[in-house]
Design a protein around this nucleic acid. Structure first.
Length: 235
DNA sequence: AAATCTTGCAACCGCCAACGA
DNA sequence: ATCGTTGGCGGTTGCAAGATT
């Protein structure tokens, strides 16, 4: 049996978006807002899959997108958040205003991964790379560095510390991570009513057992001013 | 100058969870 | 409780541009 396709593939365009298509999508969303991606293409006069429209809007056309190079601060934040959350790109993107999950994912795979490897840090577990692997990486990076004139990474004799401070660093990070609940829309009055009925924050810090120094989480005694929030760290 | 290789990014694909009928 | 639909997410691919040979 299988799933029905998300759209009629035979009559949809694929590949890069043209300026005309972009303009149609922008105009439509400006006039009608986001939502119901399935019916949007037809309504907007686009021969595209709804998913494709959503992706184009989220990753490229949405206003307030910060384009251009990542700053050093953003680099650091991504690395630390990745150490904590793993490949949860959408959550990471939520902490970087103007950046999309796709952009961060690409940036991670093309830049940060390499950067961490060159520092002897395993980009998957954020700990030190196994010595043999590190030597291999060192060799590869040295070759690359020589050809690009980049300073070689410093692999000390004692690699026990290596990049393992990364975990510790995570604890110093002010991860006042909160996941905002979806924007309230009058159409969603039912779900909003449910939220109102359950007005309390869900502390992921407690839920996932992230505790600092064995102290009780402040969620237990704080009077959270914004109850519609998922808390991910004790603040 | 041409051919080949590498890199970076936009877009696609498939899976999954939430939701409503 | 079940099933179909939809939106969202993460992994992967394809292609254009730049770098190298």
């Amino acid at each position: 049996m299988g799933r029905s396709p998300c759209c009629e593939k035979a009559h949809t365009n694929k590949g890069a978006w043209s300026k005309e298509e972009d303009q149609k999508l922008i105009s439509y969303i400006k006039a009608h807002g986001e939502g119901c991606w399935r019916s949007l293409p037809k309504a907007a006069g686009l021969l595209r899959c709804g998913k494709s429209c959503r992706l184009r809007w989220i990753n490229y056309l949405r206003p307030n997108l910060k384009r251009g190079n990542f700053t050093e601060e953003e680099d650091e934040l991504i690395i630390r958040l990745h150490g904590l959350l793993g490949n949860k790109w959408s959550l990471i993107a939520g902490r970087l205003p103007g950046r999309t999950d796709n952009e961060i994912k690409n940036y991670w795979n093309t830049h940060i991964k390499r950067k961490l490897l060159s520092q002897g840090v395993d980009p998957y577990n954020h700990g030190p790379i196994h010595h043999a692997m590190a030597l291999e990486t060192h060799r590869a990076v040295a070759i690359q560095s020589q050809s690009k004139g980049i300073a070689e990474p410093n692999f000390g004799e004692d690699n026990s510390d290596g990049g393992c401070s990364e975990r510790g660093d995570n604890l110093e990070l002010d991860l006042n991570l909160s996941i905002s609940l979806p924007h309230y829309s009058p159409k969603c009055s039912d779900s909003h009513a449910n939220l109102e009925a359950n007005k309390r924050s869900i502390c992921l810090c407690c839920h996932l057992s992230f505790r600092q120094s064995g102290q009780p989480c402040s969620c237990l005694n704080s009077d959270d001013s914004n109850p519609l929030v998922l808390r991910l760290w004790d603040s």
